[in-house]
Design a protein around this nucleic acid. Structure first.
Lengths: 298, 298
DNA sequence: CGACATGGATAAACACCCCTTATGCGTCGG
DNA sequence: CCGACGCATAAGGGGTGTTTATCCATGTCG
């Protein structure tokens, strides 16, 4: 019912292809004696000679000949399967990221990575769930964390999740421009419940801010808030680094350089055990370089 | 190009079928810890998780799922191949024998063995070449030997290859019956060169026998000589045990019980290493019992 | 709601398998 | 006739994979 020792079968397979113990041993990186041993083992298990020992060569016996093609086929299937897998594993990079980062920065910049590394396919899984990088089949995660994550994971800080008010130029113009922090109180605020509003005003030295009585929009993803802000629907707290393009192009304006320190940051995270996987190294290096300016600016 | 450790693949295959490390371990006769170790090994080699560890069960990962069917197929092929082989090896008994024995005794009696053991197919290779039982793929040999054979072979004496003159009743009648050994000299001898003639006459106390001037037929197989003798073409030296039926039925007559001791015998021979193979035991036991009378008579 | 059962992960120590080294034997070729 | 080539065999050691023991997480049952 159960198979003979697999190591013996592997040796047998190699010998059937070379029809030589010595040659097979070379292929397998072992000595001729070891090959002889394994074949003898298999022959005892099978109960019949697998090879006929001729003076200076060997030939398949009847039993051996009936076994050889099937064993070769089985090994061919496995070789192919693992070769495919290796390719797939090396070529597919799976990233899980918080939605904000996905739709803002990653969506705009991932193309550059793919141009640099066309051989790597990238799959982005954008979810706010904290995927377990150690157990689930995901290569890299991008998360907002207050501190470097638990043991077993390597993390690189990408950019601090600091916040500052952003708004559309048209909205700013509607009140004659935003000159000082208190001016913002005249404008509708998107998601004023956001704790960062209170923090920012505190840092800005504007007293008496209260979310009381202000409507709450529940646009809990920065990208949605950003879109709403660009549409002129209000002023909102965002991480300016993630809206660099929008600010540079004038679609959003950042009236004050002042940042509310969130105490959290976006981190690139991956399992320590895979820190040497080529695709992970590539992505990490690219990502750190591409986001270097964010860290430099702050 | 080269496969991951086969032991790990075997474990993986079992786990994919059970979807349980513990269960797979039971099937393979090892502990759950060992299974865990092997799977981890394979996962490191492949570079990706093969299973997703859910609380009380595991599930195939994407990579694992793509690998599983192919690995299962490969193992199925090998299992089938070795199962077939085992069947073939156990069910086919291959005998090499000297032609005389083949056509005389074996051809007539093998049917009885097959009735007793219908599950075993017998292949008889009748050749006078001495097949190397240790190296060639033959289970059992029947040979004429002067002594038990070389080391590594088990031998059982079947019957002494002693000779005595045999002739047809009609031929005996043509000279008014064979009363004493010297009468034989009046008859044509088939293969008079045969050394056994001289030996037999010597044992019989008939002096002056010479093969000089007598024609030589070169019928060097006993069965051919026997056929010629039955046709009345002459008197010939044969092993009476092999012509028991012919003598019993009157087709041949043995005028004298006197046997020339050939110093050789028919032996049943097989490799010592296979002495416990069921089919070999079966045939040996049957053969020794079926030929017991030959040894008893002499 | 807490104790238990289940299933997998992990660490350390050990056992055994399998490989290597060394040698022998038989045959072929110069 | 000697060396080359190829497989078989024995002895011995190293390393891989196993077991044992324990931990941890989760789901279940009283």
């Amino acid at each position: 019912m159960s198979l003979p020792p697999l190591s013996a079968i592997r040796v047998f397979e190699a010998v059937t292809r070379h029809l030589s113990f010595t040659r097979a041993g070379e292929e397998l990186g072992m000595t001729q004696a070891a090959v002889s041993y394994q074949i003898k083992l298999l022959e005892e298990r099978v109960g019949a000679p697998l090879f006929l020992r001729k003076p200076r060569q060997i030939a398949l016996s009847e039993v051996g000949a009936s076994l050889a093609p099937q064993v070769q086929q089985a090994f061919e299937i496995m070789r192919e399967a693992f070769a495919d897998t290796r390719g797939e594993v090396d070529r597919l990079l799976s990233i899980t990221t918080v939605p904000t980062f996905a739709s803002q920065w990653l969506a705009q910049n991932l193309g550059l990575f793919q141009i640099d590394h066309p051989e790597i396919a990238v799959r982005v899984d954008s979810t706010s769930d904290m995927v377990d990088l150690l157990n689930d089949e995901c290569d890299i995660g991008i998360r907002t964390l207050a501190a470097p994550p638990e043991k077993g994971l390597v993390s690189h800080m990408l950019v601090k999740a600091d916040f500052t008010p952003l708004l559309s130029p048209a909205l700013a113009e509607s009140i004659g421009g935003v000159k000082e922090p208190a001016d913002l109180l005249k404008l509708p605020m998107l998601d004023p419940q956001d704790e960062w509003w209170a923090l920012w005003f505190e840092v800005a030295g504007v007293p008496g801010f209260s979310a009381e009585g202000r409507p709450m929009s529940m646009l809990n993803w920065q990208s949605l808030l950003g879109t709403a802000a660009m549409a002129g629907r209000g002023v909102t707290m965002l991480t300016p680094a993630l809206f660099r393009d929008e600010i540079a192009s004038g679609r959003l304006i950042q009236p004050f350089p002042l940042l509310a320190p969130a105490g959290r940051a976006y981190y690139l995270v991956y399992p320590e055990s895979r820190r040497n996987a080529p695709k992970i190294k590539m992505f990490r290096d690219w990502m750190l370089e591409a986001t270097a300016f964010m860290r430099a600016e702050s």
